[in-house]
Measured scan of single mutants.
Amino acid sequence: YHADPSLVSFLTGLGCPNCIEYFTSQGLQSIYHLQNLTIEDLGALKIPEQYRMTIWRGLQDLK
């Protein structure tokens, strides 16, 4: 799967570019796929713990 530029820029902007593959490997290719994820969902996606809160907060800021 290839990540949408919106996803790449979002995660890169948060300092988490190495997390892109965790999302794309589950078929979550764009920022729209991420918008309703919970902190528990990020854990289920195996996002490293040190990035989960950062990503979750970033998603809240998009709403």
Rank of each mutant, 00 (worst) to 15 (best):
P5S: 14
H2P: 11
H33Q: 13
K63M: 11
I55V: 09
K63A: 07
S30L: 02
F23Q: 01
I55E: 01
L7S: 01
V8P: 11
D61Q: 06
L7Q: 00
E40N: 06
I20G: 03
Q60P: 03
C19K: 01
H2V: 10
C16K: 03
P48L: 00
L37R: 04
T54M: 06
A3W: 15
G58W: 00
M53Y: 03
E49Q: 09
Q26Y: 03
G27W: 01
F10Q: 01
I47G: 00
G58Q: 06
E21W: 07
V8L: 15
Y22S: 06
K46A: 07
I47C: 05
Q29Y: 08
Q26F: 04
S9R: 13
G13H: 14
G15R: 05
Y51S: 06
A3F: 15
Y51M: 04
Q50N: 11
H33K: 14
Q26S: 10
L37Q: 02
L37W: 05
K46D: 05
A44G: 14
Q35C: 07
I47E: 00
G43E: 13
Y1V: 15
Y1W: 03
Y51T: 06
P5I: 15
R57I: 04
R57S: 06
H2M: 15
E40F: 02
L37M: 12
L37G: 02
P5N: 15
F23R: 00
L42W: 14
W56R: 05
E49P: 12
S9M: 04
P5L: 14
Q50I: 04
Q50D: 06
L14A: 04
T54G: 07
L34S: 03
G58T: 03
I39F: 05
I55C: 02
Y32E: 14
L62T: 08
L34G: 02
S30M: 07
P5K: 15
L62H: 11
Y1H: 07
G43S: 10
N36P: 08
G43L: 12
S9D: 06
S6T: 08
T24A: 10
C16M: 11
N36W: 07
G15L: 01
S25N: 11
C16F: 05
E21F: 12
W56P: 00
I47A: 01
G27M: 01
T38S: 12
Q35A: 10
E40Y: 04
Y22E: 06
Y1G: 03
E21K: 08
K46C: 07
S9I: 03
L7W: 01
L37F: 12
K63W: 09
L11D: 00
K46H: 10
L7M: 10
R52S: 08
N18K: 05
Y1L: 14
T38R: 08
S30I: 00
L14C: 02
L14T: 03
I55W: 00
L11N: 00
Q35H: 12
A3K: 15
N18F: 06
K63S: 11
S6D: 12
V8R: 15
R52F: 02
D61E: 08
I47F: 03
F10V: 02
G27T: 05
A3I: 15
F10G: 00
G27D: 13
Q26N: 14
L7Y: 02
I55N: 02
P48F: 00
G58C: 13
L42P: 01
L11Y: 02
L34A: 13
L28F: 15
A44M: 11
Q26V: 09
I55P: 00
K46P: 11
Q50T: 09
H33D: 10
D41V: 01
Q60N: 14
A3T: 15
L28S: 07
E49R: 12
L42C: 02
E40K: 05
A44D: 15
L11M: 06
R52E: 07
Y1A: 11
E49T: 09
I55K: 00
E40M: 06
Q29L: 13
L14D: 00
L34M: 12
L7C: 02
G58N: 03
T38W: 02
Q50E: 13
I47Y: 01
G27F: 00
K46Y: 03
I47D: 02
L62F: 08
G43I: 05
N18H: 13
T54V: 14
S6V: 09
H33V: 08
R57Y: 10
H2A: 07
L14S: 02
I39N: 09
L59R: 01
P17Y: 12
T24C: 06
W56M: 08
Y1M: 15
